[in-house]
Design a protein around this nucleic acid. Structure first.
Lengths: 342, 342
DNA sequence: ATGAGTTGGTAAAACGTTTTATCAAATGAC
DNA sequence: GTCATTTGATAAAACGTTTTACCAACTCAT
């Protein structure tokens, strides 16, 4: 009992229902300005369902010059952070009848070429830029395209439409958490000093210290980048230089935390006995570390969701979107944090 | 010096170049059966470049009833395994001028509904099914759609077009590796006994034992599922029941290995001193475990690549694709394996 | 009975390609 | 000089929607 697969067109529906194509089109799209007898409406929808009518997106797109698709461009798709963003975006898109076209940017490619291709060749209705790489060139290229877009997990000068998480507040929260456990010397393994998220996290770190009445010691902040190796190297530098040794550590990334933990383990520094550690952004990796890592969880998936849905709003209504920050942050307590001394 | 963004159409190119639309269309698509003076051809391509002409996909799709898009449906997008598959598929698609439409299947949804939507509403030219969930219902639904598709990382009875990695060979390789280190009692934490990959891996485990001249002991195989909790529970059962205790362990998954390692650590079993561990499929998690996990690496990205490109071949030539297995496997030695006793 | 609104539709022209069927001019064979 | 063939194009008809412009039939106040 294989269902009918020949795709019915609007003219078939019209013929069977005994009305014009125009009537079918307008009823099917729920055109409010179209007055029609209830009886006719029902006849049309019944026939459409009966015939399993699905509008042909190419024909519709040709006529309306809308593709009902969004492009999302991500670097490092295998980074779970981005995966979560995509999941959220896909959900929002699906709910609104849009489809999500994915473009993975590998390091070789010019990011501007990807934007260009998505807009100009694929004719997506809007672009979700999940992590802009080159702030100047990228934003320039995006604006030149003159097409709706939203920045996600990143802000840039001159771009209003963006959705970010609470990097600053979450970091502050992490530091506050450590301070409340009783830690006085709290170090920070930071990311790159030019990347938006890292800057915010460093700010949050400083704010947290300030609020806890602790001094900011530049010697306790070291740049670790985003990799495990970077985290390890930074941790070694910190162990060598910081006197007295910190009792707690706020790592800007899970991988950085993992690298740091390896070094500490090798150095015989017990976690959390001698050193508490907390990482930013939650993920499966936190669970598998030894000990499992306490983290600050942020609504990554919601960030993707909001980005896509606000972009669709903008596409549909032309409305202005001021940019948003998803404030929620939550400490996920695991085993890597404790009061100083254990 | 913003480049011209008004999209030029074929008629513009034709007018400027002083030829007909047909000529432009055929030259631009490289239609071999169209004989044309070299001079005219050059004039057309020059004008097209000049005007930055890009064919409108909706118009083209309407006429040709092809969308030049592929749908990929994945469960658990945040599982790095699937991310790698997507990366490969995206690369293949981009190379061939196709775009990749992503559909994330969350647990709530009927998988058949997703296939249906992609084919019937989005009109993708083909479907990449990255991990079929319900073998019977899913395959039935796919076949009923009567549309090109490829199964990736999974085989199913009655489906020829699939691309898989060498689950069996890789598992055998893992066991051989452990045996060559001198281990005699090698346990296996397996996945679900009904899932294709798990079945293959179990087979490979048995073959590896056989070839190494070791007996298969059913008491050394325990079902762990795919999660960390599952791995932990299975490991506990194994510690309780297996006498004498195994000296090595082959885990079907990174997360399962992670769960097992946690239990071993708590039980005071040293890795690799008292127990060597090797996991299937490589990934970032292997590096952050303590100790870093030895794994067997498989070409996941290539699997995605081959799936997409063979699907495109099939769509374009109607050719038959027999199914493929990517044989390569490679042991990535880290710190979790050693000869028995340390 | 006439004119002005309403109600409930319809006809047909786009949208930008691809492709089929044709055709004019040039060439070559007789 | 005519007839076939080749070369190098073209005109125009789809493809399946959406939407603009129009209309016929009623109702209702005058």
């Amino acid at each position: 009992m294989k269902p009918k697969r020949q795709s019915a067109k609007i003219s078939d529906v019209a013929r069977v229902a005994g009305v014009s194509q125009a009537a079918v089109s307008r009823v099917m799209r729920g055109d409010e300005s179209f007055v029609v007898r209830e009886e006719t409406r029902k006849r049309i929808t019944d026939v459409a369902r009966e015939l399993n009518y699905q509008p042909n997106p190419a024909a519709r797109g040709l006529r309306t010059s809308r593709s009902l698709s969004l492009g999302i461009v991500v670097p490092e798709l295998d980074n779970p952070i981005h995966a979560k963003i995509i999941i959220g975006a896909e959900r929002a898109a699906a709910e609104r009848g849009y489809s999500l076209l994915i473009a993975h940017r590998d390091d070789a490619m010019q990011e501007t070429a990807i934007y260009e291709r998505l807009v100009h060749r694929n004719r997506v209705d809007g672009l979700i830029v999940a992590t802009l790489q080159d702030e100047h060139g990228g934003v320039r290229a995006l604006k030149d395209l003159d097409h709706p877009f939203v920045l996600v997990n990143r802000k840039a000068r001159g771009v209003e439409h963006h959705v970010v998480i609470n990097d600053r507040g979450g970091s502050k929260r992490a530091v506050t958490y450590l301070a409340e456990l009783g830690h006085q010397r709290i170090a920070h393994l930071s990311g790159s000093p030019v990347r938006y998220n890292s800057i915010c996290r460093l700010e949050g770190y400083r704010e947290g210290l300030l609020e806890a009445g602790l001094d900011f010691d530049p010697g306790l902040v070291v740049e670790a980048g985003y990799t495990m190796a970077g985290g390890a190297a930074a941790m070694r530098r910190l162990l060598d230089s910081a006197q007295p040794r910190p009792t707690a550590l706020f790592a800007s990334t899970l991988m950085v935390a993992a690298g740091a933990m390896g070094v500490l383990r090798d150095a015989g520094v017990r976690i959390p006995g001698d050193m508490s550690i907390i990482g930013f952004n939650d993920g499966a990796i936190a669970d598998v570390l030894a000990p499992p890592l306490t983290t600050v969880r942020t609504p990554l998936e919601n960030m993707g969701y909001l980005a896509a849905s606000s972009l669709i709003n903008h596409i549909q209504d032309g409305g202005h979107f001021a940019g948003a920050m998803l404030k929620d942050v939550e400490i996920v307590e695991r085993k890597s944090t404790a009061p100083p001394g254990g």
